[in-house]
Amino acid sequence: MPVSATFPKPTIMPLGDSAVLVRFGTSLSDAANRATIALAALLDAAPIAGVVEIMPNLVSLLLRYDPLLTAPASIEGELRLRLFGLDEAAEASQRWSIPVSFDGPDLDEVAAALGISTAAFVTAHNANPLRVLATGFAPGFVYCGLHDGLVLPRRQELRASVPAGSVLFAAGQTAITATAMPTGWHVIGRTSFNNFDPTAHPPTQLSAGDRITFTVAP
């Protein structure tokens, strides 16, 4: 069955005078995220003239354009043509296995809040491959999801800084940091997988739509 059967209808709106936002939803849903990733793959394969950069996020996609080369009306027209073809769009999907040391300061608390043992949490966390829902929040940062049944809100308090390679958990998602940053997510572990090298081309390896299997680091 084509995934498009469940794709929500997008809203196309200007974002400033040099970008258009295509929004498939106003809250995170599996369908809106899959539609965003499918459209990004389509636009990568068949770019729109005058569009200089696209950036898929959780449920929306940014198209940055040169206002001297094109106009929003013609971008919208081209977008509609491509949205018709969203049916056949193959989701980009590289597969990765990422080893995690499950020793984060919040791990036991997370398991307890979910009413399971720490070992059971790790097993459930790693049971199914997750999709990279979005990149771009920070260099090399990825959101992965969505967990089935493993859903907790963020922490009440912000941690001022967690190091690169932190494995975070909240809102039915697992995220991996590639730079040090503050976070309100639960820190459940760390990985040696490095998704940001500013000297590499491209500087990150994981793309939205990729499938990730988390494993327990030896």
Binding site: G16, M55, N57, L62, F137
Partner: peptide
């Protein structure tokens, strides 16, 4: 609290 979207300079 909204789902995050891309930001452009001037927002």
């Amino acid at each position: 609290s909204l789902v995050s979207n891309a930001i452009v300079p001037g927002d």
